[in-house]
Design a binder for these strands. Structure first.
Lengths: 370, 370
DNA sequence: GCTTGTACTTGAAACGCATCAAAGGGGCCG
DNA sequence: CGGCCCCTTTGATGCGTTTCAAGTACAAGC
C-alpha cells in the first residue's frame, strides 16, 4: 500500500533513477533489454508515476481542461465530445469540470485547471459576455466557447445569426407565405437567431412574419399553448410555417396543432431552431438547425493547439558557470494573437427516431413535420 | 506572462514564503492585517498557486476523479450530478474524464487520476464485471459504480432486480392479466431486470407473461416493429401491459400501437424500465422505473469519504535527531474493508413533458400511457 | 596501445509549495 | 528590570519527478 516511487523501481531494477525516468519518457534512448527490465519491474511493483511531480518537474502535461456550465445540456455535451476527440487526436487528455451554473464554481475550476499546469483550458462561460477579462492574461492558453463578445482573446462561437438565416431560407424554399416565430429571445443567442431570420426575410417583403413571445423558459408547455392559439385562428390568419426558437417549443407547438386537428406538415410546417440531439432519443423527428457543438469543441482544441505551437513558452535553462549553477530565464515573446472563429450551424433533419448524438453530420432526410 | 510564484508574492509583500503559504492554507494563523496585505498582493500580482507543487508537497488535494464510459448517456450524467453535489458538500472538487467506451482510455484516465494524488477515484466501468482486480489494490480510495460483480472492493450499484420487480408489481396493481416484456437482455443489467419481473410474477401464476426479443440495440425502431406485431394479433392474444426494457423501446411500441389504432393506455398499457430523463425533454410522458443514477453518484462519494476518514493514511513525519533530519514513516495499517451498496431504483412517473434532469425525486402523477 | 567516437547510463539540481521546529516580539507578572 | 508565556512569522527541508551535463564502457581506427 505504501506508494511505490521511481527510486524504488530504480533500486529494484538495479539501474539509476534517471534511467527509469527515461524508460517512461524517452524509451528510444534505452537499450531494449534495459527498457524491458525496467518495464517488468514497473509492472511487478505496480508503480504509478506521480503526476504532480511530473508536472512540477517537467512543465505542462499533455492535457486540457474544460469547464462546462452544466452537464445535462446536449449542447455542452456535444462540445465535450468534439473537444475530447480532437484532444485525443493530438495525444492530449481532456478533463471536464462541471460548474453547475455557478459563477464562483466556474472561476474556481478555471483557476484549478490553470494551476494544474494544464496545457490549455477551455470554458463555456455562462455569465456576462465580457466575462472576467483578467482571465485572458493568464499564463495558460485559454479558449472561450459559445460566447458572444468581442473581447480580446481566443474564442469560438456558433454563428447564431446564420442559424436564423438558414431556417428562414428553408422556409422560403418550402414556399412559406406566413412565418411565425415562437419563443422568447431571452439570451443573446436567441436574439441573434431572430435577427438572422429577419435579415433573411428582408429580401422577401411579400412574406409575412410575426414573432410570438413564449413563457419565460421556452418550455414545451409554452409551445403547446401558443400552438393552440395558432390552431384557433381562422385558416387565412394561420401561418403556414412555424419556427420554434427552441426544439421543445417546436414540439409543443406540434402537439397542440395535431391535437386541435391541424395536420402537420400538410397545413402547417414546423421547424425547430436549436438542434439538441440528446433531447430526441425516442422522440419525434423534427427538422431543426443545430448549433455545431461538436465542431465548436473541435475548433476550441485546435485553437488551443495553435497557441501551444505558436508561443514558444517561457522556458528556463540551466547554465553552469564554473561550478555554480546559474538559472537563466529565456522568454520568447509570445505574439499577442487574438483569434476568433465563428462556426456555421447546419441543418439537422431527422427522419428516424434514432438520434445520433455523436457527430454533427448533416442528415439527408427531412423530418416528418416539414 | 512569466508565472508568479509564491516567493514573488512573499518578496513583494515583504513577508516570508511560509507566511504566504499560511495565508493560503491556514488563514486563521495570521494576523488579520498580514492576511489582508498578502491577499492584496496576491490579487495584484495575479498569483495562482501551482496545484502540482501543492499536491506534491502537501499530499492529496481535496478532489475526486470520476471516469465515465460516455457523457451522452443520461444515466452517467445523473451519476456525475449526484457525485458532484455530494463532493461539493464535503468541499471536494470533482473532475470528470470521458473514457469514450474504450477500455484502454478508461484505464488511462484511471491511472492518471491515481497518479494525480486525487483523494479518491470513481469509475463506472464498462467492460467485464470483474474488471481489473488489480485496481482494487491501489493506494487511492476507489469506488466502482453501476457494476455487477462480487469482486472485493467498494462499489455501489443499482438494484436491477428490484427495478424489474417494481415494474412487475406496478403491472399487477394495474390489474394486468397478460404482460409482454419487450427487449433484448443484452447486458447484465437488463438480464437482472427480466429476472426481477419473473420473480415478482412467480407469485401470480394466473398472470400470463411473455418476453419478446428485440433487435440487437433495443432501438425505437425495434420497439415499433414489435408494437406492430402486437397490434396485429387477435384481441384476446394481445397483452394488456407491455414493458419496454428500454424507454426508447417502449416509446417505439407506443407509436406502433397508436398508429395501428390500438388505444394506449385504454386497451394496452405501456411502461418503460430504464428511466432516462434526458431522453425526455420535449418527448412524450412515459412511466418508467429509473435506476437511481443521482443516488449512485452520491453514495459513491460517500463511500469515498468513508474510506478517507477510516484509513489513517500513510504519513511521513520528520524527526530531528541531533542536527541530522531523519525521516520516519509511520504507517497505520488500513483495515481492509469491503463495502458494497445496492441502491433501490424508484418509479418515475411523468405527466408533464417538462423533464427535470436534476434530481431523482419521484414524480407524483402517472404518465399518459399507463 | 592509444585516441576518438558512439551508445548508454548516472546523479545532482531544480520544479513550487506545505510543513513545522525554531526564532522573534510583545505583554504580563514578580 | 528580568523571566515567562503566548502569538506570529521565519526558512530550511523534502515531496517525486525531469532534465542534462558528466561519466562509463566498449568498439573502431590508426
Amino acid at each position: 500500500m505504501a506508494k511505490v516511487k521511481i527510486s524504488d523501481v530504480a533500486h529494484e531494477a538495479g539501474v539509476s533513477l534517471g534511467t527509469v525516468s527515461n524508460a517512461l519518457n524517452h524509451p528510444e534512448k534505452l537499450r531494449p533489454e534495459t527498457l524491458k527490465l525496467i518495464n517488468e519491474t514497473i509492472n511487478r511493483l505496480g508503480y504509478l508515476p506521480n503526476q504532480s511531480a511530473r508536472q512540477l518537474a517537467g512543465g505542462a502535461t499533455k492535457s486540457f481542461g474544460l469547464v462546462l456550465p452544466r452537464l445535462d445540456h446536449g449542447f455542452s455535451l456535444q462540445i465535450a465530445s468534439g473537444a475530447h476527440n480532437e484532444a485525443r487526436k493530438h495525444g492530449y487528455d481532456l478533463l471536464i469540470a462541471n460548474a453547475d451554473n455557478d459563477d464562483i464554481l466556474q472561476d474556481h475550476y478555471l483557476r484549478y485547471f490553470m494551476g494544474t499546469q494544464m496545457s490549455g483550458v477551455m470554458v463555456q462561460p455562462m455569465a456576462s459576455p465580457d466575462w472576467h477579462p483578467a482571465m485572458t492574461k493568464m499564463p495558460v492558453p485559454i479558449v472561450h466557447l459559445d460566447i458572444h463578445c468581442s473581447a480580446p482573446g481566443y474564442y469560438v462561437a456558433a454563428d447564431n445569426e446564420a442559424q436564423g438565416r438558414i431556417i428562414a431560407e428553408l422556409a422560403i424554399a418550402r414556399g412559406a407565405r406566413h412565418i411565425t416565430v415562437v419563443g422568447r429571445a431571452a439570451f443573446m443567442q436567441l436574439t441573434l437567431r431572430v435577427l438572422g431570420i429577419h435579415k433573411a426575410l428582408a429580401l422577401h417583403p411579400d412574406i409575412k412574419i410575426e414573432v410570438i413571445d413564449a413563457g419565460e423558459w421556452n418550455t414545451a408547455a409554452d409551445g403547446y399553448s401558443i400552438g393552440a392559439q395558432i390552431a384557433g385562428r381562422p385558416a387565412d390568419e394561420r401561418p403556414d410555417f412555424v419556427v420554434g426558437l427552441t426544439d421543445v417549443l417546436a414540439s409543443g407547438v406540434i402537439s397542440a396543432l395535431v391535437d386541435k386537428g391541424i395536420s402537420v406538415p400538410e397545413q402547417v410546417r414546423v421547424a425547430g431552431c436549436d438542434g439538441n440531439p440528446l433531447a430526441w432519443s425516442g422522440s419525434v423527428p423534427l427538422t431543426t438547425v443545430a448549433p455545431p457543438g461538436y465542431e465548436i469543441g473541435r475548433k476550441g482544441v485546435q485553437l488551443l493547439m495553435e497557441q501551444i505551437e505558436n508561443k514558444v513558452p517561457t522556458k528556463t535553462k540551466h547554465i553552469h558557470v564554473g561550478s555554480a549553477a546559474r538559472t537563466v530565464t529565456a522568454v520568447t515573446a509570445a505574439e499577442d494573437i487574438n483569434r476568433q472563429e465563428l462556426v456555421r450551424p447546419f441543418l439537422l433533419e431527422r427522419a428516424s427516431t434514432q438520434a445520433s448524438t455523436q457527430t454533427d453530420a448533416t442528415a439527408i432526410n427531412l423530418g416528418a413535420y416539414l
